[in-house]
C-alpha cells in the first residue's frame, strides 16, 4: 500500500526529472546541506545557552528570539529540499534504516523542543534572567544537541548505504 503510493510518487514528473537529470539532484542537495547547517547551527546556539556553554550574558528568551526565525526558515527549506530528494527515489529511501532512524530522531528533537516550550510557559521568569538555567533546561539543551548531531550522522550514512553517488 505505502510502496504503491511511493512508487507513484517517484514516477511523477518532478521526481523523475530530479532522478534522471544530471544537475538537479546536486543543486537540491546543496540547498539541503546549506539549510540543515543553519537548522543545526541555530538550534545549537540555543542548546549551548541552555547548557551554559555560551551566550551566558544573555537570557534564554533573548537567545531564542534571535535564532528561532532562522531555525524555522531554514527548517522549511531543509524539509522541502529533503522531500524533493526523497521523492526522486522514494521506495529506496523509505526502506533505508538510516533514513527511518533519521525521521524518528527529528520527531524526537521536535518533541524535545515542544517540552522546552511548555517548560518555558511554566516558569517564564526563569528564562528571562541571565542566570544559569535550571537542570531541566540543561537536560533539554544537551538532549537537543545530541539528537541533532545524530540526525546529521544518519543523513550522511544514508548516502553510504544506498547505491547512489555519495
Amino acid at each position: 500500500m505505502l510502496d504503491t503510493w511511493l512508487q507513484a510518487l517517484q514516477d511523477s514528473a518532478l521526481p523523475t526529472a530530479i532522478r534522471e537529470g544530471d544537475r538537479l539532484f546536486p543543486w537540491i542537495e546543496g540547498v539541503h546541506v546549506l539549510a540543515l547547517s543553519l537548522v543545526v547551527g541555530s538550534i545549537a546556539i540555543v542548546d549551548m545557552r541552555l547548557i551554559g556553554m555560551a551566550s551566558r550574558e544573555r537570557s534564554v528568551r533573548q537567545t531564542t528570539a534571535a535564532t528561532l526565525p532562522v531555525t524555522w526558515c531554514a527548517f522549511a527549506l531543509a524539509a522541502i529540499s529533503g522531500g524533493l530528494l526523497f521523492s526522486s527515489n522514494a521506495t529506496t529511501y523509505a526502506h533505508n534504516v538510516f533514513f527511518q532512524i533519521k525521521l524518528l530522531l527529528i520527531a524526537a528533537a521536535g518533541l524535545n523542543m515542544l517540552s522546552f516550550h511548555l517548560l518555558l510557559g511554566r516558569g517564564a521568569q526563569t528564562w528571562l534572567t541571565v542566570a544559569d538555567t535550571p537542570l531541566r533546561g540543561r537536560v533539554v539543551g544537551a538532549l537537543s544537541l545530541g539528537l541533532w548531531i545524530l540526525v546529521v550522522a544518519c543523513g550522511r550514512w544514508i548516502g553510504f548505504t544506498l547505491n547512489a553517488v555519495t
Binding site: V33, L38, S42, V70, V152
Partner: peptide
C-alpha cells in the same frame, strides 16, 4: 565536517 560547517554558517549568518 558538516557539524563544523553548521557552526560557521550559522555564526556568519547571525
Amino acid at each position: 565536517h558538516i557539524l563544523c560547517v553548521a557552526s560557521v554558517m550559522s555564526s556568519v549568518l547571525m
